[in-house]
Design a protein around this nucleic acid. Sequence first.
DNA 1: TTAGATGGTTAGGCATGACTTACGGTAAGT
DNA 2: ACTTACCGTAAGTCATGCCTAACCATCTAA
Lengths: 105, 105
Amino acid sequence: MPNHLTKPLAALADPTRRQVFEALATAPMAVGTLAQHFPVSRPAISQHLKVLSDAGLVTVTKQGTRNIYCAEPDGLADLRAYLDGLWQDVLTSFGEAVEQDMKHA
Amino acid sequence: MPNHLTKPLAALADPTRRQVFEALATAPMAVGTLAQHFPVSRPAISQHLKVLSDAGLVTVTKQGTRNIYCAEPDGLADLRAYLDGLWQDVLTSFGEAVEQDMKHA
DNA sequence: TTAGATGGTTAGGCATGACTTACGGTAAGT
DNA sequence: ACTTACCGTAAGTCATGCCTAACCATCTAA
């Protein structure tokens, strides 16, 4: 029951917030520059960035007045590891189901 | 902008619903049997299963009065593929950042 | 110092989500 | 046919989430 994945999953569940992260995954960007690419206001982007930051998916570095946000690989690594574990469970579960069908035949 | 991932991500974002899916990933189960493993009511589990079903993460097969829910590999495969793509983007973005630092040195 | 640019924070409204209780509907056993 | 078991759905409540508008703080440039 790895509960530390709730924040990252909830963060990527929102469409606009997921797009924000996708943009940051391509290249680091400032808040204003980021907000220009989306139809929502800048405070909304700022809140999304806070959610992504609390989820461990992005990091910030101050450059004068600009805050440059950057994607954090470790956050994604945890998600990938979790899904890989689930994937193995599902596959073995399917294998056992097939085995059951064999005995029925 | 793959928007078909919103439902699966939102489905796995909820803690109890994620635990439900984890249980189904281990082995198929009926609704009542599943509800006994959680502190919430059976209708709540039923609603969670509907969300997971709409997200393409589980499938149902009727056995008399019992509805057996089973994890669906294809749904997980899409999520894994999406995260793998993001992972590649983040890595190349990091590589370019290091390259920039090289030129500064 | 003054003016402009950049961005985090708050308050409020509107929608969505998770849960419980109560009900209806279907299949199996007597 | 009657009862029991199993499950989905509807209505209602309480909490949370996303958004905008407005305000405030900080850094830079003239």
